[in-house]
């Protein structure tokens, strides 16, 4: 592992020189592409990301356009609405497509904020130790003493819903995990022989951080991010399901499931499509995450 990651860090710093070598990243990409489940996951995730990005072009109707004369149509009942319409007469297919945008946006935004906050704080705690470490450790301890989604519910109940507030509420708990991981990584890396020898031959603090610490803590971080995204998507769906997440008229699969609960006896399509979408997207991300973990950390495989 040591030699492999050392060459990987070289590859990061001088990509041209290492172009013909077997690098950690190239090996990982090969292992990932050979993992059938991971590839299935990648296809699923790509599909939903595609929907999210091109929702404006793909959706046949605006997500908030109400057709008063076409309320609660079943799929196929009207040629303009292949997935039927919802309880106020909006095209369900269009809302499903925009729901993908909501889910993907929340997942990516929450993890982006979590990384932006968690990596520097965890990094400082792990590398500097001392008082900074003590503060961060206590903070982590307190934040993990409470279920993340409950905390999000609490915050949303005070701030009110809406996509920005949902993202902020979920980021407040999501960065903790990233900080904890970064701290643990740096704590163990700091003691590694190659870092010690780098320090001994007089490499600067900055050099050690850029060349050894960051590249080597990247892989576990990547895995954590790939699992953090579906966790955030799950939490958004949960909040919206309870009716305190995304506000009307914006589309969210979780909210669609929550509303469908009152209509499920007759209008089964309202429940079926968003539940399938949530399950598929969650599975897709999990397959990708598992595949990434197996590909990036061959030691885990037996």
């Amino acid at each position: 592992m040591t030699s492999a990651s050392a060459s990987a860090s070289d590859a990061l710093v001088q990509p041209a020189k290492a172009s013909n070598q077997r690098t950690l990243w190239r090996d990982a990409a090969r292992r990932f592409s050979r993992n059938r489940l991971a590839m299935v996951g990648l296809v699923i995730v790509t599909f939903f990301v595609f929907l999210a990005v091109f929702a404006d072009v793909l959706a046949p109707h605006p997500y908030d356009k109400v057709y008063f004369e076409r309320v609660l149509l079943f799929p196929g009942e009207h040629p303009a609405h292949p997935m039927g319409t919802d309880e106020v007469g909006r095209d369900y297919l269009s809302r499903m497509i925009y729901g993908a945008r909501t889910s993907i946006t929340v997942g990516l935004a929450v993890m982006a904020i979590a990384v932006a906050i968690g990596v520097p704080i965890g990094g400082i705690a792990g590398y500097m130790g001392g008082f900074a470490d003590w503060i961060v450790s206590r903070l982590v301890e307190i934040m993990t003493a409470f279920p993340g989604i409950l905390f999000a519910i609490l915050i949303i109940s005070v701030w009110g819903g809406g996509i920005t507030k949902v993202i902020m509420a979920l980021s407040i708990t999501a960065w903790i995990e990233i900080a904890r991981l970064t701290r643990a990584q740096l704590l163990s890396l700091r003691e590694k022989e190659y870092v010690e020898s780098a320090r001994a031959i007089g490499v600067t603090q900055r050099g050690i951080i850029m060349r050894h610490l960051i590249p080597n803590s990247l892989t576990p971080l990547l895995v954590a991010i790939s699992f953090g995204i579906p966790t955030a998507i799950f939490a958004e769906a949960g909040l919206s399901f309870l009716g305190i997440g995304i506000n009307d008229p914006f589309a969210s699969w979780g909210k669609m499931v929550g509303v469908s609960n009152s209509y499920v006896r007759v209008y089964w399509h309202l429940a079926l499509f968003p539940t399938l979408a949530i399950a598929l997207l969650m599975l897709g991300f999990t397959f990708v995450g598992d595949g990434l973990r197996d590909a990036l950390d061959p030691k885990m495989l037996e």
């Binding site: 579906p230 499931v257 539940t275 969650m282």
Partner: peptide
């Protein structure tokens, strides 16, 4: 079981 939300 671990991935799919329980309300789904």
């Amino acid at each position: 079981g671990f991935t799919v939300p329980n309300f789904v």
